[in-house]
Design a protein around this nucleic acid. Structure first.
Lengths: 224, 224
DNA sequence: CGCACGCTTGATGCTGCTCAATTTGTGTGG
DNA sequence: CCACACAAATTGAGCAGCATCAAGCGTGCG
């Protein structure tokens, strides 16, 4: 994969070309295999990472327990706030699939941000996105039952991946459970209940037989 | 209160003087009484608000239930991300004490951010702070019991307000409960249990008789 | 004096976590 | 291609935390 195709990545695509080229001046690339830890919470990231391919779990540990904040997808920048503030990462990151990742020296990002107000705005937008997402997560945790969170996730994912109500999981159900903040057993039970609402799952494929009914059920309960 | 004293506020203090003066060019001021709603979630804030005096609850509602994200203190900027991204506020805001608030036109903030890289950096730092705080909250919700969250809040607040282990609540216990994400009854029960660990409370005063013991207890359980 | 509000305490039921036992699925080597 | 081993997913039983409903106090204010 070469420079020109990097410029197609959403994060870089939004920048004007000279900015993007400047960012890529000292870019490195790595292709970590599954279960590679990219960084541990409390460490300083030397590079802004951008996922080209694969999925990366962002999580935090305490007393042998883990909390999963997010499963980052291709095109997501990682450690953006830590890089921009010159601080440590507040989460650990590990690949949960084989991945390909761009690495841009932290100093380059900071320098460019200082010189290019448009880039600064892009960065602000990205950080704000993450912030808003985490606030939405808090609201979800507080107001929705496990079952409702699972139902909503399936509904929303089924809508965005518009394969006609068919979802292909990119990772195991256990990771989905972690993302939704519950143990695998509980997610499994939720799936069992959802079967009565027209949701079947075969391995990593989930099929929503009646999207409209599911939407109505979610709304009747509590949709955010 | 006049201009020169505004410049002492932490948010403005970090800026160089010309920047701060520019920000204050079109500043307005209001002094809402208790229980005034400043904005409702989904609305566009026309002004960046900065609390001079008083406390403001940031919350979100759904189906007659509320989630409190934060109780903002004097010097906190409100709606910063919405203003910078030109989007809507994702939370509602209401005063929970009589307050005094500065209002800076949103467009002024955006313009200045574009012209002044240092100001842009300050904004990034602020948004990142909020982001990190919300991630810490998620971790707390997921890993700590209600009792533990209450104990940790008292410990940390007792340390920062270093009145020698004496805490003066600026609002009722019910709001503290909301901030910690539990009903008032549960907070009350937590206080009852904490009495056995040397924490007394009289009205809005909380006294930690043995800070060290409390810290040890928190650590034995799970401190974040 | 009495009403309202904030806080506490008690009793009850539900949600969801934990532990444990199967069952299903997957990949490997004979 | 089958047999086996291992991991992933499901199902069941029991229990703890916590929300909810409801009642009892104390304090302040009209």
């Amino acid at each position: 994969m070469d420079r020109s195709s990097f410029l197609q990545l959403p994060f870089l695509r939004d920048l004007n070309e000279t900015t993007a080229v400047a960012l890529l001046a000292n870019v490195k690339q790595r292709s970590p295999r599954k279960w590679t830890t990219l960084i541990k919470e409390g460490e300083f990231p030397d590079f802004l990472h951008i996922i080209v391919d694969g999925f990366v779990e962002l999580f935090s540990s305490h007393n042998d327990k883990e909390v999963t904040f997010e499963i980052a997808e291709p095109a997501s920048p990682l450690f953006l706030t830590a890089v921009m503030c010159g601080g440590v990462s507040v989460y650990s990151a590990r690949t949960i699939t084989p991945s390909r990742i761009l690495m841009i020296p932290a100093q380059d990002v900071r320098d460019l941000c200082k010189r290019d107000p448009l880039f600064a705005q892009t960065i602000i937008n990205r950080i704000a996105d993450g912030y808003n997402r985490s606030l939405r997560d808090i609201k979800n945790i507080r107001l929705c039952s496990n079952f409702e969170r699972a139902a909503n996730w399936i509904l929303q994912t089924g809508r965005s991946q518009d394969n006609n109500g068919r979802i292909e999981l990119k990772f195991g159900k256990a990771k989905l459970a972690a993302l939704l903040g519950m143990p695998p057993e509980t997610l499994s039970r939720s799936f069992a209940l959802l079967r009565e609402h027209g949701v079947r799952s075969f391995g990593r494929t989930i099929i929503i037989e009646n999207m409209f009914a599911l939407a109505k059920m979610c709304h009747a309960k509590k949709t955010l």
